[in-house]
């Protein structure tokens, strides 16, 4: 692995949970400015791969890197924004305003013990404006809709002005209209602002629409290429273990 050019990478990563192999020799490389979609059926190892890339899961074999450094030596977490799978399912009674949640994205920047500064508050407000919910800053997080809540967590991930954004099924349990708005927003973050994004999703049409590159996982990488070629080259059938007739009009993907 060329560690210097690696924004996010995995090389021959194998993860086992007891007798179950979650990832089997997975290699992945995300380049600067790319928008990569990671798809695969339930249990295919998508979330395990994201958690391994973030250093939350120790691989049994292989190595991972982030922003040019091996993950175990990487410390500058303000460069990474992460929206976990269950962010939208936060306890509706959790006593926090939307601004307080966005401010948490500044913890890595601010450091241990130090209190919030005006700079932190301005950055959190700016992040909320960036995702279109600046007017909800003082609302309780639990009173927001699923889509608004997800935007609040995206604002938290953006509050430290990261270089890399990891979104783990960010729209699970959110209605179709909010999903479309959200994907347009992250598409814009990549297209207009050059943010490198790894998006894990079950939403194939959205991934095909937004992403430069699509990676299909089923314990191992079964497809890695243009979203346009995903069906043509059998990626869909191999990832989801099914036969899918090709519909040329359904093929999408960004150039």
């Amino acid at each position: 692995m060329n560690a210097k050019a690696c924004v996010l990478g995995a090389e021959d990563v194998t993860v086992r949970y007891g007798a179950t192999t979650a990832l089997d020799g997975v290699s992945l490389r995300v380049e600067d400015g790319e928008f990569v979609g990671l798809v695969g059926p339930n249990g295919s190892g998508k979330s395990t791969l994201v958690r391994t890339l973030l250093g939350l899961v120790e691989p049994d074999e292989g190595q991972t890197c982030c922003c040019g450094r091996p993950i175990h030596r990487f410390e500058d977490w303000s460069r990474v924004g992460y929206v976990p799978q269950d962010a939208v399912h936060v306890d509706p009674n959790f006593p926090a305003s939307v601004l307080e949640v966005a401010l948490l994205g500044r913890v890595a920047e601010r450091g241990l013990v130090n209190r919030w500064t005006d700079e932190d508050r301005e950055a959190a407000h700016a992040a909320l404006e960036r995702v279109g919910i600046g007017h909800l800053a003082d609302r309780s997080i639990g009173t927001l809709s699923g889509g608004e809540r997800q935007r609040a967590f995206l604002a938290k991930a953006l509050a430290s002005d990261p270089d890399l954004l990891l979104l783990d099924e960010p729209m699970a349990g959110v209605d179709a209209a909010a999903r479309e708005d959200f994907y347009n927003l992250v598409d814009d973050l990549n297209h207009a602002e050059g943010l490198t994004i790894l998006l894990v999703s079950h939403d194939l049409p959205a991934v095909r629409m937004c992403c430069h590159r699509l990676v299909a996982l089923n314990q191992r990488v079964v497809f890695d290429g243009s979203p346009r070629d995903f069906e043509d080259e059998g990626g869909l059938s191999e990832a989801y273990d099914m036969h899918v007739p090709h519909h040329p009009d359904r093929a999408g993907g960004r150039p």
Binding site: L56, S78, F94
Partner: peptide, 12 residues
């Protein structure tokens, strides 16, 4: 709020 995210932000 989120133990894992806190860990990723360098919180001990």
């Amino acid at each position: 709020l989120d133990e894992e995210a806190a860990h990723l932000s360098g919180v001990p």
